[in-house]
Design a protein around this nucleic acid. Structure first.
Lengths: 145, 145
DNA sequence: GTCTTAAATGCAAATAGTTTGCATTTGCAT
DNA sequence: ATGCAAATGCAAACTATTTGCATTTAAGAC
């Protein structure tokens, strides 16, 4: 298990114990940068450690999310997906056909939120923005009928 | 059943039969303007028609969504919610404490989508935007500790 | 009005993604 | 090494939603 132990300090800093399973899932998430379902992460994990359990994957991801190591979201009505807590604020552009996900670094909502706060008297603390469309590849395939 | 039959033309125009259950759900949705879960709509419906079945509610909503009579979405990781297909493009502002939903009519994404299309070569066809925060009422409650 | 037929519905069971209970194992401080 | 709380494996349970099937119903033709 090459990756075991790599994230021990990181986990300890977040008030968590460094377990084999946690290190494994962190290394998988670090390798696959885009959001993944719990099941997909589980399927990756059993390639390295066949004893890991799906419920453990869910539990680890839940704990990670609680400690702001990962974030959890979902796209349209799909399953929950998890990714490492982004270093910079970002959004997603998702191809509706092949499900490819492109990360978008620029956020256009700052002024909008300010004006919404003024007109609604809400305090806005978070938002969710995804763009959906078709990637170049899928546009070609769709155009061919 | 006062509302039975009110939406017969509307349903026929959308290629659907006018049933008691469909009319009832349409009238409930028209009365409650904000997105509702299937279960909540079911609970409202049985007040008028105790014979209606939850699976029928789901089926009706599914069919409505297919015919663009309603839209289906979900907020954060909550249950699916349904609302009448909005006459104008809109987004939602959701209070994270009391779940109150405010509809936002202005959409700030037009220019953003154009620039994303140019930088990614995607064709953007849809988006999803929600703002989350705290309403005035809940801000007061939170401030009181 | 009657008849026909495909769609819609009620009811109960099934599904799928996720969570929970409990016994056992493990990380980590001492 | 010891002790203890947290983490894990395994199987069962939960929850929101979907599905199968028999029955009912809307709507068009006549």
């Amino acid at each position: 298990m090459d990756d075991c132990g790599n994230y021990k300090n990181y986990l300890n800093e977040h008030g968590m114990k460094s377990t084999k399973q946690r290190n494994l899932l962190l290394s998988i998430l670090a390798k696959i940068q885009t959001p993944q379902t719990a099941e997909k992460l589980y399927l990756q994990a059993i390639k390295s450690d066949s004893s890991i359990n799906l419920s453990t994957v869910y539990r680890v991801l839940e704990k990670f999310t609680e400690k702001n190591i990962t974030i959890r979201t979902s796209f349209l009505d799909d399953k929950s997906v998890y990714s490492l807590y982004p270093k910079t604020h970002q959004h997603q552009l998702i191809c509706m056909r092949c499900k490819k996900i492109v990360l978008l670094e620029h956020c256009p909502l700052e002024d909008f939120e300010k004006s919404v706060e003024e007109s609604t008297h809400f305090s806005v603390v978070n938002h969710r923005l995804e763009l959906y469309g078709y990637c170049r590849q899928c546009q070609k395939i769709i155009a061919m009928g």
